[in-house]
Design a protein around this nucleic acid. Structure first.
Ligand SMILES: [Zn+2]
Ligand SMILES: [Zn+2]
Ligand SMILES: [Zn+2]
Ligand SMILES: [Zn+2]
Lengths: 173, 173
DNA sequence: TATATGAATGTAATATCATAACAGGTCAAG
DNA sequence: CTTGACCTGTTATGATATTACATTCATATA
């Protein structure tokens, strides 16, 4: 796994389960935004106002937002109010590795450690809706092995889990 | 892994990648349907005409069909032509373990070895749209471990891979 | 500076996927 | 029979997503 940033500086790398922990989220979000600037600048693509604003909106919480939730926010702020406005910005963020799509929720969440090439697993709390990225290396390796055994070539894979985060497990028990 | 049927009799168990192999599919489908009868009868639920027909439709090919594809077929055969007709039958089949929902495709595929409690990984060919069930035990174990490490309790998980099946890999290279 | 170019955004229209709510029919238990 | 649970049909609506085209913006030349 190669990084474009130092592990020691990256809250996401230090604690991918960040979404479930108390933490300085203002710093967490500002950090991700700063990384996003760096990543896009390095890639020679533009983090335009809409795109940047969508990322900020996703970064407000460690949750996944539907495209129409994002669109509502954008429209209220004077951006376009038609679906493509939101979908295009979200697609851009996903392509650049700044956000992830959560298939189970038909929704999008900001990446907590952009800049690193990664394909994490997602842990989705069914009670509080928090979404955390989890280490998916071993699971992916096992899946690759199973696919290879039958001659299937994996190009993209989705690993998502629904359940209870530590806090909700406590409170609902 | 416990079975309600013998491994030696079960094409699905013998070759979960069946979808990618030449095989006697008429037998494969008839077999799955027979198992479905057994499973539902044992569970005390009813495999009504609509439900049975939906399963037959899904069993025609090792692909995933959208609810509206199924609905179109049903309507053409004199069943109801409104979405709930298809969604309810599909929901029933999924609940009974006779079909699976493919999140990535918003579509449904017949289970190739119903009767066994299982949560497989799905291998989806982006070229021919075939969907195979793959052994997900090790991948799930790895995911469980990653989740446990951060205190997350998994209740349901989705493992799906998109890529090329053996045949399409050959033909497109 | 002018102007060509491609990228990004805005908008209308439409397609696709999914559920809520209620009415009527079927069937077996009491 | 009648009751009650379950299943089916239908209307209506909601939620998610894409196509197509017009317009604006940034930037790189001439
Ligand atoms: Zn945070
Ligand atoms: Zn990420
Ligand atoms: Zn078959
Ligand atoms: Zn199955």
């Amino acid at each position: 796994m190669t990084h474009q940033h130092e592990r020691s500086d990256c809250p996401g790398c230090a604690a991918p389960e960040l979404a479930f922990s108390a933490h300085d989220h203002a710093h967490c979000a500002a950090d991700a935004l700063a990384r996003a600037e760096a990543v896009t600048s390095a890639a020679g693509v533009r983090l335009t106002p809409v795109r940047r604003r969508v990322l900020e909106i996703l970064l407000e919480e460690h949750r996944a937002l539907g495209a129409y939730d994002v669109l509502g926010r954008l429209a209220a702020e004077g951006f376009g109010n038609q679906p493509p406005v939101a979908y295009r910005a979200l697609e851009f963020l996903v392509e650049q590795g700044l956000a992830h799509r959560i298939q189970r929720l038909n929704a999008f969440t900001a990446c907590i450690h952009p800049g690193e090439q990664h394909a994490p697993a997602f842990l989705i709390c069914r009670n509080c809706a928090a979404v955390a990225e989890a280490e998916a290396g071993p699971a992916r390796a096992a899946l690759d092995a199973a696919a290879a055994r039958v001659g299937f070539t994996i190009e993209r894979s989705t690993i998502e889990a629904l359940g209870l985060c530590p806090a909700c497990r406590e409170s609902t028990s």
